[in-house]
């Protein structure tokens, strides 16, 4: 009984992860400019990875394999925002213009500023 419940949960997580991966991919194609595409990439980097890794972890229970899966998830979740930020920052310095809503403040006034070491 319990085994069935775990299996069902695992299948649900795996398939959800797959679906969100495809949705993120579609976002990567459909969003109109570079900065909004970053959000599409973010979907595949976060929920897709989390769901798939937890789905797989449920399959192997408490073991060395699960520990390594969790380490993979930890590395992914630590490196993904860093890489995304590096990309966004580079594009911003390189004067890639975002498509913005009319009411929004513009990006140009921040361009001259530098990321200080905090």
């Amino acid at each position: 009984m319990l085994e069935w419940a775990i299996n069902l949960a695992s299948w649900f997580l795996l398939l959800t992860g797959g679906v969100f991966g495809v949705i993120g991919g579609i976002g990567l194609i459909r969003f109109p400019d570079f900065y909004s595409r970053l959000h599409g990439a973010g979907v595949t980097d976060t929920l897709c990875a989390i769901c798939i890794v937890f789905g797989l972890a449920l399959q192997s229970g408490i073991s060395l394999l699960t520990l390594k899966l969790m380490l993979i998830l930890l590395f992914l979740l630590f490196t993904a925002p860093t890489a995304t930020h590096a990309l966004a920052r580079a594009a911003m310095v390189d004067e890639v213009e975002p498509l913005l809503d009319e009411q929004s403040e513009s990006l140009a006034k921040h361009r001259g500023e530098r990321s200080s070491s905090i």
Partner: peptide, 8 residues
């Protein structure tokens, strides 16, 4: 997702 840090 939905927010991306551009500069800190």
């Amino acid at each position: 997702p939905g927010t991306v840090t551009l500069m800190l």
